[in-house]
């Protein structure tokens, strides 16, 4: 009897144990996925709530005093003015290359009539904001993230709290406003530089007169595209500064938390840029469809 029982147990329990282990592993994996999902969702909601809080402050006139204005001016100088030599060089360089390549391809394909539409539709509304936001994110978002994290570690945020200086008004608002202004204005500047270099290159490479070039651009210009482009730039400017601020605030009292917060902040900035790009493309296609 005992031998029979042991034999049956060996036959049936072994697969049962394996199944049990498999079930446990699957449950753990599903729980982990659920936990990560919930964490990502709650983090997204937190970011959204923080964004709404910042937006509300942005329209509160009492938030702006001489200290806040001074920070805003300094931030605009550091973000938009100091970057100008590099920015203009990149704009002129990229502009020349992109216009040269686009023009050559269009001639090969016999589609040079679409030159203006490609310049306005691709270079101005897509390429210029994307390169601008990348440059500003690489340079300023990382700096803002590190700055806030260092202030947190050094207890400087505690100083502001002790002296009843609102951190949102004094630190965050001017930086986010600067982000919005910088991206919008630098994108326009990028477009102007690219189109200007396009003027020179189209004259040199494609024997296009200035009059023809300007006419092609004006005919191709779509006002709603330019509005959507400006809104997209403003949204990107808002998030590429707000996200690093949020991650900077997550730094602990330890110095080692600074690089970790910058790393997470920058990864999320690039995810945000991608999401905004996709959303703006959907919005643009909907506008074209319905208007």
């Amino acid at each position: 009897m005992q031998t029979w029982y042991k034999e049956r147990k060996r036959q049936y329990d072994l697969p049962f144990v394996i199944l049990l282990k498999l079930e446990t592993a699957m449950t753990t994996a599903i729980e982990q996925i659920g936990r990560s999902g919930l964490h990502a969702f709650s983090s997204f909601l937190d970011t959204l709530a923080f964004a709404i809080k910042i937006l509300a402050r942005m329209f509160d006139v009492r938030a702006y005093n001489s200290a806040v204005r001074m920070v805003l001016i300094n931030q605009i100088y550091f973000t938009s003015v100091q970057i100008l030599p590099l920015f203009l060089t990149v704009a002129a360089g990229f502009g020349a290359i992109v216009i040269g390549i686009i023009g050559q391809y269009l001639i090969h394909l016999g589609l040079f009539d679409y030159f203006g539409q490609l310049l306005m539709g691709f270079v101005v509304t897509e390429f210029a904001p994307f390169i601008t936001v990348l440059l500003i994110a690489l340079r300023s978002s990382s700096a803002v993230n590190a700055e806030i994290a260092v202030m947190k570690v050094n207890k400087e945020l505690n100083t502001l709290h002790v002296f009843r200086i609102d951190v949102i008004n004094y630190l965050f608002l001017p930086r986010i406003l600067c982000g919005i202004l910088s991206i919008v204005l630098l994108s326009w500047l990028f477009s102007i530089v690219v189109l200007t270099s396009g003027l020179i290159f189209s004259a040199l490479l494609f024997d296009m007169s200035m009059n023809d070039y300007v006419t092609v651009l004006l005919v191709s210009a779509n006002f709603s595209d330019l509005i959507v482009m400006s809104i997209k730039c403003a949204t990107m400017g808002f998030f590429i500064v707000m996200i690093p601020i949020r991650y900077g605030m997550r730094a602990t009292d330890e110095l080692t938390s600074i690089p970790v917060s910058v790393l997470h902040g920058m990864v999320n900035v690039f995810i945000a840029i991608m999401i905004i790009e996709v959303v703006s493309l959907i919005v643009m296609s909907l506008i074209e469809k319905f208007i």
């Binding site: 260092v150 050094n154 207890k155 400087e156 505690n158 100083t159 502001l160 002296f163 009843r164």
Partner: peptide
């Protein structure tokens, strides 16, 4: 709270 002027290492000068 409203009249506090704290001199402490826990409220350092802002370094930038």
């Amino acid at each position: 709270e409203r009249r506090l002027g704290l001199v402490s290492l826990d409220a350092p000068l802002i370094s930038n």
